[in-house]
Nucleic acid binder design. Structure first.
Lengths: 337, 337
DNA sequence: ATGAAAGCGCTAACAC
DNA sequence: GTGTTAGCGCTTTCAT
């Protein structure tokens, strides 16, 4: 277990000053007009002894940690896991590491988490926020940290946002079902004030209203336990026999919803047509396969990290917030006739 | 944007020394016999002004970062995403944050990643390693960092490990297929030297050997692109018409494999029985549902974090490595007659 | 029971 | 071009 080397050890061994070493380390040799030969010598020595700067000390000194805080609803949800993966790749490529956490859509938990990240001096935040954390996020922003929101926006928070056209997505999906002749179209969604869920609901309502059709809405409280969801969906569908099509508000509602539907012995699409919001491997391989509103995950992650890196580069005050609303696609499969 | 407070600001405002504040902050007031009244006063003030110690400075001083490095094959794979979620919950509960990364089973990438984590002074490592990083991991261990390996073990590395009975799992699965009367059972697996894949292969081979049955093995190179896998599986199955059952070595091989099977127009289980290694939402909801070898994810994560926390507490030298081999269950579904 | 002060390893303003 | 040095904010030894 050899002793960790420090910059002064290097300087001493080479008989030069720490400043010189530091400048070379930070690629400022040219700028400081340090002789090419010295640079070579230092780099060779550093490689030889395997010296690595202590990033903690560096961070303490510079105030930058080269770390990004990623806060999602649940890292085990495939939508977020996929986004996390793409963001990771991009961040590492740019010299940033990722600290992650799952909020469970819990406002208090999220506040704690934000504080933890703050104490850790993460350089920037990527957040899919629950509602109720507007104030904390505004504090973050006004203290100069770049923040990119995604998946759901926060009213009253002035920062970069990447989302999708939720309203249009459900609006079109419902119109598709109407064209196919379904008469009683239900919307099974999360009991939530989050912007994306509200917009999805509005799209559903508008489409029905335009055709003077009845609403059948079921809002289910957020839960980590699939069985809770299954129970709610079962109860709803057993009660509402007239429902002949259902749009699920999120992918995991749909996954649990499918279980409920199979448990009830309902046949898709003859008894019930199904569309899910957010795609999932399950939907392609189910039999029948399930039509889904597909978010452009790659594009979302790309824009998110892109905006954050931009924010990291330029002082946030100079940059005015951008909002990107991306298009979804309705992936037609066999779950509707 | 108010100036960040430091411990000396607190001390100055309260007219006491930083030492005292530090002791109180670190819960050593009792031990240092600081008057109860002073402790109260300091804590009240700290809460009032919202002072938060700078964890960077603390880490620099103590050498502990309260961060755990989590390295998995691919965070977007549901198996790893689920483990990540459970590990996160436990770690945060114990005051640790998680830095994660995906190795893509790439030896060189993993070496880089290990180095990055080392530079970050993570306190401990949880790794599902590719092969070829034995040396790097041994260096980590001998430098005193606790390391817990999971999912696959590394020969020659002496550290905690949590895995499953891979050999027994495939052995039993194949025997089950044999009992059901299948004659030409294929094993579609990863082209890999990793311990868990080798063991799975051995279980397959032993079971067949005991019944003097022919092997049909297809090893597919690791790829992030599902289409690559689909192509390989399609080619293999079109060539090997006699195959009447197939065991997939990992869940994502099975997910892509199912696509290949459907593309070829094969019917499960009449044309082909299917078993997957690792469960997945897809398998339960597919029609027919797919039999799978299910890993006890909760138990795995629990043991992993448990071992790591143990290692974090006691100097690793004093602790002798533990290896935990957990049992899987064969989740019988409809993909075999 | 409390305080002074020496660093942890690094960066960068300033001096030469 | 290169060196000296003052911190970044904290912990902890040693002194009182």
């Amino acid at each position: 277990m050899k002793k960790k080397l420090s910059i002064s050890d290097i300087a001493r061994s080479l008989n030069i000053s720490v400043t010189t070493v530091s400048f070379i380390l930070n690629g400022r040799a040219e700028e400081k007009r340090i002789s090419e030969e010295l640079v070579q010598r230092v780099q060779k020595y550093i490689a030889e002894v395997g010296y690595k700067p202590n990033s903690l000390a560096r961070s303490l000194r510079t105030g930058k940690s080269n770390t990004i805080g990623l806060m999602v609803e649940d890292i085990s949800n495939p939508f977020f896991a996929n986004i996390a993966r793409m963001i990771e790749d991009n961040a590492y490529k740019n010299g940033y590491k990722i600290l992650y956490c799952s909020t469970d859509n819990d406002t208090e938990k999220t506040k704690d988490l934000i504080q933890m990240f703050q104490e850790r001096h993460v350089d920037g935040y990527i957040i899919a926020p629950p509602d109720g954390v507007e104030e904390e996020i505004n504090t973050l922003i006004s203290s100069g940290s770049p923040v990119v929101l995604f998946d759901r926006n926060l009213p009253g928070v002035h920062t970069d946002y990447v989302g999708i056209d939720n309203y249009g997505s459900t609006y079109h999906a419902i119109n598709y079902l109407i064209r196919k002749g379904y008469k009683n179209i239900a919307f099974i969604t999360l009991y939530s004030l989050q912007s994306q869920m509200q917009e999805r609901m509005q799209g559903y309502e508008s489409a029905l209203a335009e055709h003077q059709m009845n609403q059948h809405i079921k809002e289910i409280p957020y839960s980590n336990d699939p069985d809770d969801i299954i129970k709610h969906v079962s109860a709803f569908l057993s009660r509402k026999k007239e429902v002949d099509a259902v749009l699920f508000g999120t992918n995991y509602l749909a996954v649990s919803g499918l279980r409920a539907i199979y448990n009830l012995g309902l046949k898709i699409p003859s008894d019930l047509a199904v569309i899910a919001f957010d795609d999932h491997d399950v939907f392609e391989l189910s039999n029948p396969s399930i039509t889904a509103i597909k978010q452009p995950i790659q594009e979302i992650s790309g824009e998110v990290i892109n905006l954050l890196l931009k924010g990291l580069k330029s002082p946030s005050k100079l940059k005015k917030p951008e909002s990107l609303i991306l298009k979804t696609t309705l992936e037609l499969r066999k779950s509707s006739k």
